[in-house]
């Protein structure tokens, strides 16, 4: 829907990717766009991810605004040479002469019984690259507003769409062309006792956990990070200053994850506000399992509730 609005209003916007045309994308995210805008503005590419990213760079350097779909995040890797060595730094290398107003969209994360390599959360790989913005929506409304913002942004944005969101969420979203801000975290639930930071699909479990906690008298503040890089430290630190406790929830593996960066921010700039050690609820440092065990890997509501209870019990 955000694609359609922006393509209607900005002739520079084009869509490329595998099966984005007649098939409308394997998750139907580009459904109907080719019929509406034609096969030049909505192009099926050959099956080649390095080509998708590289072509997007060439188009962008010529003033187009490509929205490029990678079919699953697990197929991103051939494109990383283009993204890391060129897309992220073309502006920097040419001193602003050539730029990459590109959105790379890709399904992200597990929980839908998909085949091997279709369920990983490797946002950290992208967050570590200077020059890239990394965004992940947590609901259809946020996907609409953040995608519009990403398309309008003058720099490359890696847009990670949680697969569980395609399947689980139904929400009426007004098609009004209104973007949400990038680089901004959103407070989804205000609370006084503990700050829980999450993003993407994990927001659902986190909100459910906060509701359960409320029943037992724990008032959690829930922050949707939304832009994973750069992190909106101000919103997190303001919240921690209020609650004094921080729990971070991420689906990705624990080691060197985005959660570690949030914890570092809190330790560097919020340490004296903390009443208890920071806790992380994460995937494990192992390969994302095939689907029979994927729910054991993805943090559950129970694990989030347990972590929050733990931090509440931590002595001052």
């Amino acid at each position: 829907m955000a694609h359609g609005w922006e393509m209607q209003h900005d002739p520079a916007v084009v869509v490329i990717g595998e099966d984005v045309g007649a098939n409308g994308g394997v998750f139907r995210a580009t459904q109907g766009l080719q019929q509406r805008f034609g096969a030049e503005r909505v192009q099926d590419t050959p099956l080649a991810e390095a080509a998708i990213a590289g072509i997007a760079i060439g188009m962008a350097a010529q003033g187009l605004k490509p929205i490029a779909e990678i079919q699953f995040m697990g197929f991103l890797y051939p494109a990383l040479d283009q993204i890391i060595n060129h897309m992220s730094r073309l502006r920097h290398r040419t001193r602003g002469r050539l730029t990459c107003p590109i959105v790379m969209r890709m399904p992200h994360g597990g929980g839908i019984h998909a085949p091997e390599h279709h369920s990983e959360s490797v946002e950290t790989l992208l967050c570590h690259v200077p020059g890239l913005r990394v965004v992940s929506p947590s609901s259809p409304a946020r996907a609409y507003g953040l995608l519009l913002a990403a398309i309008r942004d003058p720099d490359p944005v890696m847009f990670l769409e949680p697969t569980r969101l395609y399947r689980a969420s139904r929400q009426e979203v007004p098609d009004d062309g209104r973007a949400l801000p990038l680089d901004r975290a959103f407070v989804l639930r205000e609370g006084a006792d503990v700050t829980i930071v999450a993003w993407g699909a994990m927001i659902a479990e986190t909100l459910q956990a906060s509701a359960e906690l409320a029943d037992t008298g724990v008032d959690a503040e829930v922050i949707d990070l939304a832009t994973l890089s750069p992190i909106d430290a101000t919103t997190i630190l303001d919240s921690v200053a209020k609650t004094g406790r921080l729990v971070i929830v991420q689906e990705a593996a624990r080691n060197v994850g985005v959660g570690a960066e949030i914890a570092a921010i809190a330790a560097e700039d919020g340490l004296f506000d903390l009443l208890a050690p920071i806790r992380r609820v994460t995937g494990y440092d192992t390969v994302m399992p095939l689907h029979r065990l994927e729910r054991e890997y993805i943090p559950s509501v129970r694990r989030i509730v347990d972590a929050v209870r733990g931090t509440m019990a931590d002595p001052r």
């Binding site: 494990y284 192992t286 390969v287 399992p289 065990l293 054991e296 890997y297 509501v301």
Partner: peptide, 30 residues
């Protein structure tokens, strides 16, 4: 099974996670 065969010898930090996963097993509601 998530941790079996990850490495020939599972590092200490990850062995702790294997124990945690056993403790959390079945809490996913699925």
């Amino acid at each position: 099974a998530m941790f079996d065969h990850l490495f020939a010898n599972l590092p200490e930090r990850i062995r702790e996670q294997r124990i945690a996963a056993r403790r959390h097993a079945g809490t996913d509601g699925h």
